[in-house]
Design a protein around this nucleic acid. Structure first.
Lengths: 342, 342
DNA sequence: CTGAAAGCGCTTACAG
DNA sequence: CTGAAAGCGCTTACAG
């Protein structure tokens, strides 16, 4: 294992020109079999590794795309990133994943770093609040796809769950169980996807002539826990709770434990966003699952089209959510009181 | 927002030489205040963004480190990556995260890609099996730190939980509750860290003159579930189960639900590796928490020292695990039978 | 403190 | 099919 060798050294070793070596490594056909073999043998002997930094500088493309994630520990984003990397890799693209810790400023900084590293494109999940600054940072020359947290006036192609419909579906389901006092526990209304979920929820309730009850419970698990615990201690306790995302779900479960709520006998519970351990809880939690696979595939399609300069016919993709009924949702308790009915 | 501008254009705009602009952007002090300001103003006017690819080619450093992760959805690795990125970022390093899907071959491919992209160093968590190939791929010129899945003859500095001690602690705790039939449910024995956990468990049992019972239950949640379910259906059911990692934990919880086991009345349950939702389960699951923060900090320290060419005095760091007692572990049921005692 | 020039390791027209 | 040369956008000695 010698020190790093250059393409020039390979050329010398193979007794060909530098350009010929370059062609071999770029799969260019116009190289005679003889020379091709000599190059490969020489590269092998020298344990040659191409310097992509140099290649990128000249060719003006890195074959790398950046992914900006607000929080890699959120399983939804973790799963999305994993799938995106596989898709990119299959198309010969490397992926640079950066995290923003839900901090819009850091999100801008990271996007800037990706640009400075000359990524060919970016798949971005904006962090809380200011996505405007982020969008101007990205600029207009850069192929870009916005995922999950889309906003009304989005300058880039985007993919997300059909949040309105998914929340609407969930609300309809709870209504069908007889619930009338349903609280939608939303993280923060500034996020456009949360806003859509709120609207979907409201629409369903309005269709049943019921006044929708939306509670803003904050962005952290702890905020959600406190907020939902106090909700559960009110005199007019809801008969069903529908959470807006997986962080709120975590907080809600804690709160129900704290308040010794029997689920679903006293309160039915429906989560937006499904993940593995929801089915391990007792009662297992019913959920609206987001179509992560589809979101990843569509995001990559939109990216891929931009990278290849192909036209995009439908730049704003919405994928349908799916209701998964488990044990945490049940018929509304009859009016005979709040007592145990197990 | 014009098209991309170069450092040369900034120089022209600011009426200084190219070298002066470079100095300003590299924080080099030897530039007069007057010129510095002109450069900054010009760069601002042209909306200049430095091309790090070009800078890296000449300076032979990218100020980027790669992180190879076997599975980003494993919360342990997710948390580790998040912390590492913050530490790197604080030192002015960007991070390229790549995932390997627990595939050793892909792990090699990704490491190779990182090298081709000229990362200054790599923090590597090997995937299952063959870490030898991976190590030779990384080679000897590259600053490298192995995290979590260390192996006996590790050519690079490494950080991991003190797995032997952590498992020993867990076993001792179960023994102190009176358990004598304890099964250690291990994923795969080929992973060195699993091996260490097995050995720690065995040591504790041997000290109490009890024959250790280790079951290999496979690497996936589903394998673990099936395997542990059949274990629970045996006539000589253990009174306590100790799982070797979070995937096995997931499988074990499923299995106990399937078999209607009362925890901890019939079987006590202790998990290796703690994470948020373990405390949301009922009963909340006792666990050995790995010192993720410490592992991240030490990994970065080892990387940082190598990047700066400083000497490393203790290249193999072990951080202690911590027992967290919740509700899933209790005294061994008295001999009066397997009946309910709630 | 400043600038002109060389060069990092590749790719890309271009001429043969 | 092949090679010699220019050049990608920076940083880095070097001379002044």
């Amino acid at each position: 294992m010698r020190a790093k060798s250059t393409m020039n050294e390979v050329a010398t070793e193979a007794r060909v020109s530098l350009g010929t070596v370059s062609k071999v490594f770029n799969g260019n056909a116009s190289v005679s079999a003889d020379r091709r073999e000599r190059v490969i043998a020489a590269a092998d002997r020298l344990n040659y590794r191409r310097n992509r930094i140099a290649a990128s500088l000249r060719s003006r493309q890195t074959r790398t795309v950046g992914i900006v994630v607000p929080d890699i520990l959120n399983t939804f984003y973790g799963a999305l990133v994993e799938k995106l990397e596989n898709l990119a890799s299959a198309s010969g693209y490397a992926v640079m994943i950066v995290t923003a810790g839900e901090d819009p400023q850091r999100s801008c900084d990271r996007a800037r770093m990706l640009k400075e590293n000359q990524v060919d494109g970016m798949i971005v999940i904006p962090s809380l609040d200011g996505s405007e600054k982020l969008m101007t940072e990205i600029g207009s020359g850069m192929p870009c796809v916005i995922a999950d947290r889309i906003s009304a006036k989005n300058p880039f192609p985007s993919v997300a769950t059909d949040n309105f419909d998914a929340a609407y579906q969930g609300a309809k389901y709870l209504l069908s169980l007889g619930h009338r006092q349903i609280v939608f526990a939303a993280n923060i209304p500034r996020l456009w996807n949360t806003q859509e979920r709120v609207t979907g929820f409201q629409q369903a309730l309005k269709e049943s002539k019921i006044k929708p009850n939306v509670r803003i419970v904050g962005m952290t698990v702890e905020d959600a826990r406190t907020s939902i615990a106090s909700l559960l201690n009110e005199t007019e306790r809801p008969t069903a709770i529908f959470t807006s995302n997986n962080l709120v779900t975590l907080g809600a479960i804690s709160a129900m434990h704290d308040c010794n709520i029997e689920v679903p006998n006293q309160v039915s519970f429906l989560a937006f966003d499904d993940f593995e351990w929801l089915r391990l809880l007792r009662p297992a939690v019913s959920a609206i699952a987001q179509p992560i696979d589809q979101i990843a595939v569509e995001a990559w399609r939109l990216m891929s089209h931009q990278l290849d300069g192909r036209r995009i016919s439908h730049p704003h993709v919405r994928a349908g959510g799916q209701l998964i009924v488990r044990q945490s949702t049940g018929k509304v308790p009859s009016a005979k009181g709040k007592g145990k009915s197990s």
